[in-house]
Design a protein around this nucleic acid. Structure first.
Lengths: 153, 153
DNA sequence: GGTGAAAAACATAGGGT
DNA sequence: ACCCTATGTTTTTCACC
């Protein structure tokens, strides 16, 4: 859990990852070097795992997003699905989940044809059956989730 | 679609959003000012929509991730679900999807109790029934998805 | 933890090819 | 489109509180 000032720093960097330490220092009311030091510690602790440009998948030529649920064909097979799937560049995220299915992956592809190819690759490489849910639009995505108040645990 | 050098710039900034223009220039083999100009254009075009720190949800006090599928109770109700859901800070992403359900949202909460509260808020605020899939672990997430080769569309 | 100051590195704008 | 140069800003380190 984060202390108050750290929480504010993290919130600012989540909203603007390229914000300068000078700006950051003004916003949180500390000196530049104090902020710098705190950011470094947050990075070392792993609370901040890195920085990334937020990209527009459509403009990158990947207009089609889908969620694919995976069910192992052989329930007794060794569970190395993530490794098998990691090689497929179209898979953006991979979640192990509770429920009737074992994994959910989120993919970005250029076209229905590319999705078809990808599904066949997933099925053969991971020996799973798949259930695909196509995304029609994305009202919002990757918002900063507010840290919970002490009250609502 | 992006031209070759722009694609490399975008890839570098996706991997390291705080990379300096000087480094970027070296990596792509252009002068600093040329790179700077290209980045500005990518930002103006909207291909780069911003920059964000990548945070560890666990360390922020949100160890529980879930996907919730939403089905409207009244199929004829006006479709303003995203606005109704946007106010709930625990919802990180919201997708309109094709399939038996209408929306999938991804949430981050502090505890099972917080998830229970959230589900009840979603059901009352949006007049939907819900189906929840709890994430057990995240082998990988928000990877950079490689832009497709011209061949595999 | 925090500050402030100095050196090095960087961002940014302008003019030139 | 790109490069180079000049200027102001930012990052980074360090000695000190």
């Amino acid at each position: 859990m984060l202390e108050d000032v750290d929480a504010r720093i993290v919130a600012e960097l989540a909203a603007d990852g390229r914000c300068s330490y000078t700006d950051l220092a003004e916003r949180v009311g500390l000196s530049v070097s104090a902020v710098h030091q705190r950011v470094r510690r947050l990075e070392e602790r792993g609370a901040i795992r890195g920085y990334a440009a937020r990209l527009d998948a459509e403009q990158l030529g990947l207009p089609l997003t889908a969620f694919i649920s995976l069910t192992p064909i052989d329930p007794a097979a060794p569970d190395d699905y993530p490794q098998r799937l990691a090689g497929l560049g179209a898979i953006e995220s991979c979640y192990s989940v509770a429920g009737t299915e074992s994994y959910i992956v989120k993919v970005r592809v250029a076209s229905p044809g590319a999705l078809e190819t990808l599904l066949s690759q997933i099925r053969t490489r991971a020996a799973v059956s798949t259930r695909t849910t196509v995304v029609l639009s994305t009202p919002f995505e990757d918002r900063q989730v507010v840290p919970p108040k002490e009250t609502d645990r």
